Simulated scan of single mutants.
Amino acid sequence: MSELFRPLTMRGVTVRNRAWVAPMCQYSAGPDGRPHDWHLVHLGGFAVGGAGLVMTEATAVDPAGRLSPADTGLWDDAQAEAWAPIVRFVQEQGATAGVQLVHAGRKACTSPPWDGQRPVPPDEGGWPTVGATSLPFGRLPAPTALDDAGIAAVVASFRRAAARARDVGFDVVELHAAHGYLLHQFLSPLVNTRSDRYGGGLVGRSRLLLEVVDAVREVWPDDRPLLVRVSATDWLEGGWDGDDTVALARVLGGHGVDLVDCSSGGAVPDVAVPVGPRYQVGFAERVRAEAGMPSAAVGLITAPCEAEEIVARGQADAVMLGRELLRQPHWPLLAAAELGAADVSWPPQYAGARPAPRSRPTDNHLQEEQ
C-alpha cells in the first residue's frame, strides 16, 4: 500500500487517504453567503476524483468577516441548509467533508482577485472592518481595533458557525489562523501591538485563538476532528516564526486540536517569500517532530512521488493540494495508479478510464536518497 493512500483516523473519523483538498476561495457566492451549484460541482468533483478530505473555501463566521461580498458563510441557517446537499454528495463519494471557518479581520471587504482585490466601497456593498489593532493592511482602509466586547462577539460567531457545521453534517472543522486573517493578526507581532491581555508575548497573542478553539470544542462533537491552519512564518524578521509555531502547536494539542495545517505568510504586504516546490513542507515536519502533533503540508506539491515521499518520510501526515487539483480534479485517482495503489477504487461510471496500476517507483527513489 502506498503511504499516501493509507487511511488516516482522527478521533471517530477515518479519511480514506492522505491527498487532501486545500481550501480555495471561489468568490462565487451571492451577497447572502449561500453556496450553490458552482460549489457543488467544484467540491463534488474533488470527491469523485478520489481526494480524502474535501475542504471548503474559507467560510465566514460573520458578515463582517468575509474576505469579499462573494464569500460563502455559516452565520445563518439558510447558509447551513445550502451546504447540506454539498456535504451529502461529498460523503456519498466516500470522501470526508470539511469546512474551514474564517474571520478576515482587517483584510475583509475586498473585491475578487480578477477585480484587483480592491477595497469595496459602501455603495457596492462594503462594510467597516475590524482587526487586532487599527493598523491597516497595505492600501486597505484602517480597521477598528476590537475591544473586549468585540472579541467576545468574534468568539461567539465561531462557536455558532461550528454548531451549524455540526448540524449540517460536516466531518471536520478547520479554523483559519493563517494568511493575515483575524486570528493570525492577533498571533503576529508585526500586527498585534496591543498592550492588554490579548497582546504582548506569545501567551497573550495566542489567547484569542485558544478562546476560539475552546468555544468551538464546546459544540463540536468529541468524535469529530478539529484542525487549525497556521502561517508557520511571516517571512520577516521580528514576525511570527517556526519556533512560535512549534510552541503554539504543543498548546493546541492540549485544547483538543487534532492536526495543524502548515501554510505561511500573509500578515503584512510586500514580503519576499521564497516560493518553490515543497517550500513549506519543513514547517509541517517541525510541527510533527518537535511538537508531537499531526500535521499537513501544503505549497506547490504537484507530483505523486513528491506527495508520497512527504508522507512516507514522516514529514507530514497528509498533503494539501490546491492549484494542481484545479488543473487535475482527478489527481488522487491518477496518483494511485502511478504509485501502484491497486486497491483504490474508481467510481463505476469512470471505471473504463482507469489506467493500469504501475509498480511503485517511489521505493527505489527513497532508497537512493536515504
Rank of each mutant, 00 (worst) to 15 (best):
G131V: 03
V155K: 11
R224W: 09
I151N: 02
W38I: 13
H176N: 04
P136D: 13
A51R: 07
G30V: 07
L227C: 08
L325V: 08
A303G: 01
V15S: 12
P221N: 11
G150W: 11
L187R: 12
G138A: 05
D115N: 12
T144V: 15
A316F: 00
C109Q: 12
G322N: 06
G292Y: 01
V230Q: 12
R313L: 15
V13K: 14
M293I: 05
V271N: 02
V251G: 06
G138M: 00
A341Y: 00
V173D: 09
S157M: 04
E285K: 13
Q367I: 15
A351V: 09
A337T: 13
T72S: 14
S263E: 03
L236Y: 11
D62W: 00
A19I: 13
N17E: 11
V281L: 02
A177K: 12
A178F: 10
D258N: 08
S195D: 15
P347R: 10
Q91G: 06
A356F: 03
P69D: 04
A149M: 07
A78H: 12
P69R: 09
W240F: 13
V61Y: 03
Y198S: 03
H330K: 12
T129N: 03
W38S: 14
L259N: 07
S195H: 15
W235S: 02
L252R: 09
P347H: 01
G125R: 13
L182I: 13
G126N: 01
G201N: 11
L140A: 01
V168D: 03
R360C: 15
R207W: 00
P113R: 07
W38D: 07
S263D: 05
G292C: 04
A318E: 04
P23S: 00
A353Y: 14
A356W: 09
